[in-house]
Amino acid sequence: MAAPAPIVLALRGLRKDRRTERAEHYSLSVPALDVRLGEKILISGPSGAGKSTFLDMAAMALKPDAADEFFFFPGARAGDGRACDIAAAWTRKDIERLAMWRKHIGYVLQTGGLLPFLSAEDNIRVPSKLLGLSAQKDKTARMAARLKISGLLKKFPAQLSVGERQRVAIARALAADPPLVLADEPLASLDPENARTVLDMFMDNIEDAGTTLIVVSHATDLMENMDFRRLILETGARDGKAFAVLKEGPG
């Protein structure tokens, strides 16, 4: 039997408190989570449960209020086991180091994650250039062909439809071959037909690249037949405080 794939993301005792309109206090916690290279994870849960909050923390774009362990392994794919201690970096307010580590994560936002002043092609190239990767032209062209955006590469985001923008955003998240891709409701702003197409293309590329994916979506029916590890953000209330806990889902 083959050895299990290396771990990309390891979390213990992660917590984020925040105020919401509904409750004075709201607390999101992740007791324990290990994500292995190549895994495809779907996080579901009710609106406002904190799915995006969790992704932002995983993307190092939001500071957790507590974290016993929070490690990212950017070199997991190349067999490089060096860990990035995200919890420690936040504690030290070492935001420059966090920005550097973020280059190794692809993040697809629900909408509008593109830089408005760059063409689709230039948007896609930003992460590769940041990592100093050259000779990405072929790869960009191949990915664009697969996402059916080859004819749109010279256009600016404002000239693209929402679905086209999402495909460009996906291409950008994957362009630099990151070991971990996060996607926050990537289909939410699309009509069902478009959503289906974009999802298929997205998953094709994920499979092709062998990348780890954590996707947050409540459009779970679209992903019914796909091979996801399912996590659920369970909500509840205790002593007048709302809380949400990330747990393994069924199956």
């Binding site: 935001i95 420059e96 920005a99 580590w101 973020r102 509008g112 994650g113 593109l114 830089l115 930003v126």
Partner: peptide, 14 residues
């Protein structure tokens, strides 16, 4: 600020 935030998210240094 949004574009700058996006650039920060993509990993641009301060």
């Amino acid at each position: 600020s949004r574009s700058l935030g996006l650039m920060r998210l993509l990993g641009f240094p301060g």
